[in-house]
Each structure stands twice: as structure tokens, then as C-alpha cells.
């Protein structure tokens, strides 16, 4: 045994521990890539409009797309879809309209998060335009119509005949922190 060898072994193991700490963080981008490939957790795909033109429409197949809306936590918004469902051919470009209303007396920034069920269908659900790509700011009492333009990939497996596109509006994280701070101070004042 020698003191030096011991320090060397310990040093290597210490480096390994630090690397594993980094690996925990690296799991996040790895996981996201994994989700995009497999559709895990219903992360939807995105295509550019040029790509869309190349997709062949499969007129022999019809898929039902249901639309669903949710509000998370304490966001004082009302959120509905205009169409309850659409029947589409794979490869066909379609629009769906959603309406959102801020029922509170302050301007609020919201962020919509999409999710598709069944999860396996989500990689075939491609959006060319979506209100979920950016944060939405609504003035007090404002009502806004928002558009999703999408196309269902024609390589969608035959066993999938119904898909649900679900959106959940969250209060944007920065806004939420600001709101919490503001309300804490009003609480103290009263």
C-alpha cells in the first residue's frame, strides 16, 4: 500500500461522483430528446409549413381529433375550444380555434402546454402554428381567439383512430412569482 495510490484512487472516485452529479443534469436534455423520438408524455411534434406541403393526404383514412382545455391552479382565466372534435384525413392541414378570457382585473401572462393522448400518437401530431409556442398576455377582461394549425402524419399506426389534443394554461412562472410577492404585500397591508 502507498499513500499516493490511495489518494489517486480516491481522486478518481471523487471525479466520478462529480461527473454523476452532472449526469443528473444531463438527463434532462437526454430525456427531452428521448421524448421527442418516442412521444413519451405526449410531447407533440412541430413541422415547418414547407415540410407540410410535401405530406401526401391519405383520403382513405379518417381520424377523430378531440380538443380538450384545462386551467392549472389559480389562473383566473376561462379557456374553451370552439370545436369539440374534428374528423381529419392523415396528411391534411386543419385549423382549430380556442378562446381564452382573462376574468381578473389585472394583466396576466399565461403559457399553454400541449399534450396528446394516447401518448404513442403524439409524435404523429404535428403543429405548424400554435399559441403554445409563445407566452400569451391578456389584459384585464380581455378575450382572445387563438389558432392551432396542425397535420396528422400519414404514417400514424392503424390501431390509432382517436386522438385527444389537450391544452393546459399555466400562469407563466415569472408572473406567478411576481403575483405571489404582490399578494403577500397586500395581505400585510390589510
Amino acid at each position: 500500500m502507498s499513500e499516493q495510490n490511495v489518494i489517486k484512487t480516491a481522486g478518481k472516485l471523487g471525479v466520478l461522483a462529480v461527473l454523476m452529479f452532472g449526469f443528473g443534469y444531463a438527463l434532462i436534455p437526454l430525456y427531452n430528446v428521448f421524448c421527442e423520438i418516442t412521444g413519451l408524455n405526449g410531447k407533440t411534434g412541430t413541422v415547418s409549413s414547407q415540410q407540410v406541403e410535401k405530406i401526401v393526404v391519405d383520403m382513405n383514412r379518417v381520424v377523430t381529433i378531440q380538443f380538450d382545455t384545462n386551467i392549472n391552479g389559480n389562473l383566473p382565466w376561462r379557456f374553451k375550444s370552439v370545436e369539440k372534435k374534428l374528423r381529419v384525413h392523415p396528411g391534411e392541414v386543419k385549423d382549430a380555434v380556442f378562446v381564452v378570457e382573462n376574468t381578473s382585473d389585472r394583466a396576466i401572462v399565461g403559457q399553454a402546454v400541449p399534450s396528446v393522448a394516447p401518448a404513442e400518437a403524439s409524435i404523429y401530431f404535428n403543429k405548424t402554428e400554435c399559441f403554445c409556442f409563445t407566452q400569451q398576455t391578456l389584459a384585464p377582461g380581455e378575450t382572445k381567439e387563438m389558432l392551432v394549425r396542425f397535420v396528422v402524419g400519414n404514417e400514424l399506426p392503424d390501431k390509432i383512430s382517436t386522438m385527444t389534443l389537450s391544452y393546459t394554461f399555466f400562469m407563466a412562472p415569472e408572473d406567478k412569482q411576481a403575483a405571489d410577492r404582490k399578494e403577500n404585500t397586500t395581505e400585510q397591508q390589510i
Partner: peptide, 12 residues
């Protein structure tokens, strides 16, 4: 109606 923090919004 609108909730706050842990307090849920009951408006809907």
C-alpha cells in the same frame, strides 16, 4: 373566485 397560492380558485 380566483384563489391564491395554496388556496384553490373556486370560480369555475
Amino acid at each position: 373566485i380566483n384563489g391564491k397560492g395554496l388556496m384553490p380558485a373556486f370560480g369555475e
